Simulated assay, not measured.
Amino acid sequence: MPDTWDAGAWDAEGLTVGRVSARLGVTVRALHHWDEIGLARPSLRTSAGYRLYTAGDLDRVHRVVVYRELGLGLDRIQAILDDPDADVPGALRAQRAQVDERIERLQRLGAGLDRMIEAHERGPLLTGEQQTAIFGPGWNPDWPAQARRRYGDTPQWLQFAERAAARDPGEWQAVADAVTEFERSLADAMDAGVTPGTPEANHLVERHRELFASYFPLTRQMQVCLGRRFEADPAFAAHYDGIRPGLATWFRHAVDASARAHDIDPDTATWQ
């Protein structure tokens, strides 16, 4: 907000637009605009037609600047300045209420940004105890940090972080329950002798892609790469084979068969 101008230093012949701009910190363009709309017009002109502001003009410009700094629109400012009966305190209270609303919105935005930053840095916004309670005793709370170190610069990690930032413990529990139910369905299908490539097996492959969207979108080629890893990685293989011996290999075959049905060669599929 500009300092109060010194009326005692007034030039009796008036001030030019440039001098008013420098004195009050207002752009010449703004002063011209206010003149055009009748908000703050200079009262005098030189013989050459240049605008000159009187002391009264400068006082009005100063009030415009003050009210604008408080966030009032130009129409509202003009109504206040031109109406001697204007309820100025009421207008300022209304503006204060709007400022309070903006502050509240910005605080919510700040909290959301904090969650997003934290999710990008560490994944699920859960304590170690919460992770174990939700994902089971076999879960290692260090896994998200390990995943970030390995995949933190990939688009999939960014997508995962965006979902993680918006998810509370109850929502994570729902995801974990859905995964458990799905893995039970895989085991039941293998026990029932379902053959990879059949409609029932393909349906399970599609369910896996839909379920994985809780973390990030999974293309069919990416799913093939995951199927390979589920079988080859000791930790993943132990998890699936702990549900049913041979489940990791059965599921990889099911994913590969589904991929072939969509003209994807599992032997050449890449993470894309």
Rank of each mutant, 00 (worst) to 15 (best):
P2I: 04
T4K: 14
W5A: 13
G14K: 08
V17D: 11
V17F: 01
G18A: 14
V20D: 10
A22R: 15
G25A: 09
G25L: 06
H32M: 03
H32Q: 13
D35Q: 13
L39V: 09
P42R: 09
R45K: 14
T46E: 02
T46R: 09
T46D: 07
R51L: 04
R51A: 10
L52N: 06
Y53F: 15
Y53L: 09
Y53P: 10
T54A: 08
A55G: 12
D59K: 11
D59S: 12
R60G: 08
V61H: 08
H62S: 13
R63D: 07
R68F: 06
E69P: 01
L70E: 10
G73T: 13
G73D: 14
L74K: 06
L74W: 11
R76T: 15
Q78A: 15
D83I: 04
V88Q: 12
V88K: 08
V88L: 15
V88I: 15
G90C: 08
A91I: 06
L92A: 07
A94N: 07
A94D: 15
A94I: 02
A94E: 15
Q95A: 14
A97M: 11
Q98D: 14
R102V: 13
L106W: 01
Q107R: 15
R108Y: 01
G110V: 12
G110F: 00
G110P: 00
G112T: 12
G112W: 07
L113S: 05
D114G: 04
M116I: 10
I117A: 15
E118R: 15
A119V: 05
E121N: 15
R122L: 05
L125Q: 05
L126Y: 07
L126Q: 09
T127L: 04
Q130K: 05
I134D: 09
G138T: 11
W139C: 04
W139F: 15
A145P: 02
A145F: 07
A147P: 00
R150I: 09
D153F: 03
D153L: 13
D153K: 13
T154Q: 11
Q156G: 01
Q159I: 01
Q159H: 07
A161V: 05
A161E: 02
A165L: 05
R167S: 10
P169V: 04
G170I: 03
E171F: 01
Q173G: 06
A174H: 06
F182C: 00
R184C: 01
A187I: 01
D191W: 08
A192K: 04
G193M: 03
V194Y: 08
T195S: 12
P196M: 02
P196T: 03
P196G: 04
G197P: 02
A201F: 10
A201M: 10
N202I: 00
L204C: 03
E206I: 03
H208D: 07
R209N: 00
L211T: 04
S214V: 00
Y215N: 03
F216D: 09
L218S: 02
M222Y: 03
V224G: 13
C225G: 08
G227A: 12
F230N: 07
A232P: 04
P234M: 11
G242I: 08
G242Y: 10
I243C: 02
L247M: 02
A254E: 05
D256P: 10
D256S: 13
A257S: 12
A259W: 09
A261W: 02
I264K: 11
I264P: 10
D265P: 05
D265G: 08
P266C: 11
D267I: 00
D267A: 15
A269K: 09
A269R: 12
A269V: 02
T270F: 00
W271V: 04
W271G: 01
Q272E: 14
Q272L: 06
